[in-house]
Design a binder for these strands. Sequence first.
RNA 1: GCCCCCGUAGCUCAGCUGGAUAGAGCAUCGGACUUCUAAUCCGAGGGUCCCAGGUUCGAAUCCUGGCGGGGGCGCCA
Length: 559
Amino acid sequence: MSHTTTESGLRDAVLSAASELAGERAATQASRRTTLERPPKPDFGDYSTNAALLLAPAAKSSPRELAGRLGELLSSRLSGELDRFEVAGPGFLNLYLSDSWHVRALAKVLEAGDDFGGGGMRERERVIVEFVSANPTGPMHVGHARNAAYGDALARLLAFCGHEVWREFYVNDAGSQIAKLGESILALANHMRVPEDGYRGEYVERLVASMTNATSRSAQELGRDAVDVMIGEIQRSLHEFRVIGFDHWQRESVLHEPRADLLSEDGRALSPVEHALELLERHGHTYRDDGALWLRSTDFGDDKDRVLVRSNGEHTYFASDIAYHQDKRERGFDRQVDVWGADHHGYIARMRAAYEALGGDPDHLEMLIMQLVHLVHRGERAQMSKRAGEFVTLDDLLDEIGVDAARWFLLSRSHDTTIDLDLDLAREQSSENPVYYVQYAHARIASMLAKAGQGRVEGALEEVGRASERLHPAERALVKKLVGFGGEIDEAAMRRAPHRIATYALELAQDFTAFYRDCRVVGAETPVLESLRIALSVASQRTIARSLDLLGVSAPAEM
RNA sequence: GCCCCCGUAGCUCAGCUGGAUAGAGCAUCGGACUUCUAAUCCGAGGGUCCCAGGUUCGAAUCCUGGCGGGGGCGCCA
């Protein structure tokens, strides 16, 4: 028997009662669309369900009549937990839960401890999340910062839900862009013009200065060294940005090196790229044309076929990426998540095609596109160009508004909406950033609990559930908000939408602050009531801290 | 031309696998500091949810067609 003091437990109780009234088959069919939600207004009850609206036809009954019978049945099953019910509108069933339900629900929240809200996934998967993957040809700009914050938060979220998460950064250290960087450095070192399509900007000058004997070395060598320097800078910036360390930095160049465990039919060691191409060729998914090797990606839904090996014999970036995805699959991950920039969207169809051609299940490959961050300056959109050296770097952003405000800003919006960043405005308003409101609620609880004393708090947690006082509406609202955390986590994870956690955290902080305003905690009318309120504060503090942690935002004990 | 994302309050954005009177922060206006931390709280004003059809008992949400903004359509990465 599931606990009806959790949202999922309550929902199960509704579904089970509905299935008794309308038949199991109909209830099962409608179960996905059956909602149990906290209505917008307290007048509509603590929870509300549309079950009767969905099942009325199957029950050969009017929605309102069925809702009434459903209410009766639930009343008898949840005696002591359900105060009353109401049938509303076209056939909603509004449930009014008792104070003792709220108290027991709080006890359940506290019982879960620090893991409250986590572990909700039905099946545990091995997930690899590849994100940032900024080209090491320059510092990270705010677009990369968004990708980093999102990928990091998503990985934290999936791990909290119980998945085994592996984080990876794909380093494009091969190919023409690196050569261009090397050429640009060489040109500058020789006091010559940087090539038209080369790299410029203050950081390139710094690279030149950091290279010894630059003028006597090849562009290729310089490019390679510059990549190492840039990766070091990227790592430092990411660390600063509180991105949890990557489990692996996969260099593209390594995918071109032979590996003893990958053998051709005649026993020769193959590189991962050769290995992937061999598999594709063997299964007849490639052909030669104009001296190039093509993937017949149109067979798998792409608009046109794609080149794997150019007529000059060089592999395309696409070929490396195919090898990379194949390698990840061979390493045994159940699911691959790629977090890519907006400019990669046209790349999705071909990657999925290649993945499928190699025998992968396309449902296990998720390519998530981050929309752009637009810079706004004095009301005008500004262009960001790395080659021209004009952009706002992650480091600049952190200098201006700090890690917490930056992460909150980037993470409180959906990944598929473009966001405008006005640095002047961000700087001006950073003290008004809602992140501080949430942190302040956390700090305030910490201070309050310190005032109560550790022993008093422990005592309060011992006797949760003993309270029998009438609850204040603010207390009831706060309990319900806490009870909804697990569902919110599951939803955010399922939708790959960590920004929902930010919305939740703000709402929770608001509900806590209303409770704090209306209900005296330390020094409440009775010791039992004080205990209940201390327990409620502890649960709120933990949940705020957890929400902030999932976003990579700090939860200070004082402000 | 084709593909993807977006269009919700003055601004920035939530809400979107359909649900009740559409929300938050900021900004504006008015009020509350003898505190459990005022980085707070209370109150007010502010909306053709881009437009037009369609599906439905019910549409900001789903479908179709427009309009507007952004991005992508290389033997670049």
